[in-house]
Amino acid sequence: MTLRLKSLFAAAGVAGLAFLGVPSAVSAAGAKPEIAVVVKITGIPWFNRFEAGVKRAGDQLGVNAYQVGPTAADPAQQVKLIEDLIAKKVDAIAVVPNDAKVLAPVLKRAQDAGIVVVTHESPGQAGSSWDLETIDNREFATAVFQKLADATGGKGKFALVVGSLTVPLHNEWADIGLAFLKAKYPDLKPVADRYPVGESLDDSYKTSQEILRAHPDLKGFVAFGSQGPIGFARALERQNKTTKEITNVGNVLPKQAAPYLKKDQISEGFLWDPSDAGFGLVALAKKVIDKQPIETGIELPGLGKGTVEAAQHVVRFKATRTFTKENVDQFDF
């Protein structure tokens, strides 16, 4: 028993000693500031595109920028990654949080350790000095619902899909949109509360079919979460229907949506380019590291000029892109 324990702790101890003895190679690596981007989940198209922007920023801005992320959209795993980055003493951590509340304590710890923290899609994040927003939420949501109203003539029933009930951004868009409809198009009504299936093609397809069954007089479909419109388009296809009968709008990745836009199974797609966001996030972190002023009129490549909302520590750009069957082939993501 004692022998075994001794050997175990010896093994663990060797591991410990090994790195205690290793002089810090990283901090000596050069004057290039190290900016680590922590995304929600690694290995999905959205964040692959995001990473392209991060790498581009690294090359163009002369920083050591790279992207990491957990295998599942689990905030606990993000906490672990950030804790490790604190240990690594990077210069800046840029986070796209899975859960603002969970990350607050660890981000504060990063700041206490002298690390610059910026976030994306998390306005008012505790523990972060700035938050980057690539779109104006009110404008974005209103544009989507305006399209719905235009295409349906402002009357009838529609279904509303979000990524999940816990994605604050999607639900904010949904709230804005519903308020907008109530004020301007009171005859356009949702069939039920929002369905939380927008991130999974499987689920959105299945739910779309069920919605079509339950509501044969459905006039429109609005989905936040990039798989929502695709799933609904596929359900329309199965029933030999097109957007002439039922409007289908929401956010999509243009390449994936292209065939459905052309077949009239998606009316119009809305999004911004994730690589712009990735680039902008690194650029913003670099500005903070360099102690450059962050104020309205700030310019970031790819995003244009931004406005600063001091109360929420938000730097906001308006980079919404709209995809139609005519323009969709210009986009390479």
């Binding site: 663990a12 090994a18 205690l20 810090s24 672990k80 240990a87």
Partner: peptide, 22 residues
């Protein structure tokens, strides 16, 4: 443990106590 050692020597951490805390 060997795996861990390999990781450490290959990389070399800036701050060992930071890692331990993590």
């Amino acid at each position: 443990a060997a795996l861990a050692v390999a990781a450490f020597t290959a990389f070399g951490f800036g701050d060992a106590t930071g890692l331990l805390r993590s």
